[in-house]
Write a protein that binds this DNA or RNA. Structure first.
Lengths: 360, 360
DNA sequence: TTGTAAGCGTTATCAA
DNA sequence: TTGATAACGCTTACAA
């Protein structure tokens, strides 16, 4: 035993060797005590425990992880923490992961695929045990490549990718949009606009499908000029701009579906600026319930679903995957949506040249 | 060299040894290449780099951290991610830490001191390089004990503790509340209520001080019945309840300062339920700007400050501390507040028995 | 029941 | 310029 080894560990944090020395046992015994492995005399155990508290020693997780090739850390990559949608998801994921003894390490991509690649690789280097991910562009080849090289399971939230991953958790946007659109059509609206982001992902596609299906169910051909989807992110400014464009149409819509958490703000501002009254001049349905939707007057009808639940389910799926040794079939969890009817929708006003609803 | 060592590393991730073997060099050389240490032949370097990409090898951060006794991870403990205040702070901290090559590992305390202790110790075991913390109870002895045992620098946000820490970052609640209160007094209000949480922390104390000082400046004695502070957390329900109690007073206030991010919702609901009009029957100022405050009608005057900036400054302070080898003096950064005047305040209505403002 | 020692994947020191 | 090897703090066979 070298001099360095036996000398007192000065300043820096104590190690298992310091504890062993103080307790007069070997490092193996100390380890057996902390890991609560059997075959250790009560007397020895108590001596070791005393030494542990005396030195305030806790095993270094870094060293443990190093040996056990698992870090009990889960990465979470999202685009923007300031979007309450993501903070709720993280909260959901964190609440179940913490209970299972995992910790969450977060990273914002700011909608940048390069940053997403960097983060995926970084989590790999950190030996993350898994990753929860809301990819920005479902088809970006670089990100997909990093993903398929990753040696940890990945669960997508609200996204679908072509590479093999552990699974995905999504809200039922198809059904939600179908119901919302049908509700407006049933009120007698015939010109219903759709504003949504997610042009290049699952969410946007499913919303569009629901919108179209509802029209088809009523035998109505939707006007393409009323469908305003965003290639990029759908923020408040996008919502406002699209409303202005819709107002300017020679046959403007009588109702609008503004599907996206951040659109409401822009939509409301635009309506007020143009002196358009809700619901008299324009019916409005938005998505993702919020204080604003609930308390603005008139209160806004929303397609509601729980981002918290999305996060929980993603974490559960990941834990399940981590606990599964053999075969694993990529799975999908669908979280329901619900139409919360408030006061922002009404029957359309009679317009010159409009002949009234056909079906009631 | 043992058989295990020389055999091909099957399945699991490659190590520096695999790269060395493939490139026909020693592990030392591989390390020199990745760390871009000089004294390595261009030829050797390229051979090593080829092997690195061939095996898709990246150094294990776990192993690096193990040697260098630093993890380049910063912990962030807050009470509730769903509070947009915290998500903005985290976003701020994350944005500066990422740029500096650090990653953020998050933990919610859910207002539980025990959980806070657990997290502080956990971050210690993970060898976190530092911690950003919004402690729930500034005086909880257990948490303070964990904190003083921690062997990493700690920066508090919006809190002040008696134990030695690297520093704190706070918003100027005293000044903000002083201005807001003065604004109401100047409008002629003489019965201004104060609803705020943070009874047991810095924030609540400073708000109360600002409120009292503004009254003193005007030579007015505030009615203790109008001061409603919360021992515990101030959520929407608390805001609503306090409003009801205020309405029930035989001399109700004509204005209310609802200082706390989540109070607005409860306050608005209570006003509507009691048919109290803002600002005609009641002037209202709240704190922390939000979509709701901006877009509800009438738009609400707020004491605004940037939680994002709080997070940024905390991260900067921590980085500064980490880069400082010798002496360090605990420091404080104060982020300014600003009164954003909107439409929720008006001169008080003449009431029977009220003799008008004394000072204008 | 307890001790010894190898090994986890790096980096850094020393020798060649 | 490169290679061999100890060390980081822990766990776990295996030996005693």
């Amino acid at each position: 035993m070298s001099v360095t080894r036996s000398s007192i560990n000065k300043g820096s944090r104590p190690t298992v060797r310091d504890v062993a020395r103080l307790a007069g046992v070997s490092v193996g015994t100390v380890s057996r005590v902390v890991n609560e492995v059997n075959n250790v005399t009560p007397l020895t155990r108590s001596r070791v425990k005393e030494a542990m508290v005396a030195l305030n020693w806790k095993p270094s997780m870094l060293a443990q992880n190093m040996r056990e090739k698992t870090s009990r850390m889960i990465g979470f990559v999202f685009s923007d923490l300031d979007n309450p949608l993501f903070s709720s998801m993280i909260k959901g994921a964190e609440s179940v992961l913490t209970r299972a003894g995992y910790q969450l390490i977060v990273g914002s991509s700011n909608e940048s695929p390069q940053q997403e690649c960097r983060l995926v690789e970084l989590f790999g280097q950190r030996q993350a045990d898994g990753l929860i991910f809301t990819i920005t562009d479902e088809t970006n080849p670089d990100v997909l490549a990093s993903l398929s090289l990753a040696n940890f399971p990945v669960v997508m939230i609200e996204r679908d990718v072509s590479v093999q991953i552990a699974g995905k958790v999504v809200a039922d946007h198809y059904e939600g949009t179908l119901q919302a659109t049908r509700y407006l059509l049933d009120l007698g609206h015939r010109r219903v606009a759709l504003i949504t982001g997610g042009h290049s992902n699952f969410v946007g596609r499913d919303r569009l499908l629901g919108y179209l299906q509802a029209h088809r169910d009523c035998g109505i051909e939707p006007d393409p000029a009323l469908i305003r989807t965003s290639e990029r992110v759908a923020d408040a400014a996008f919502g406002g701009r699209q409303m202005q464009l819709l107002f300017a149409l020679n046959s403007a819509p009588t109702a609008v579906l503004a599907l996206g958490r951040r659109l409401l703000r822009g939509v409301l501002s635009a309506c007020r600026a143009a002196d358009i009254r809700i619901p008299q001049d324009m019916s409005l349905i938005t998505t993702n319930d919020s204080e604003l939707a609930e308390l603005v007057q008139p209160a806004v009808t929303v397609v509601r679903y729980s981002a918290f639940e999305l996060g929980c389910e993603a974490a559960h799926m990941l834990l399940h995957r981590l606990g599964t040794v053999g075969e694993w079939n990529a799975s999908t969890i669908v979280v329901p949506t619900e139409l919360v009817v408030r006061e922002s929708c009404a029957r359309p006003q009679q317009e010159p040249g409009w002949t009234g609803p056909h079906d009631d």
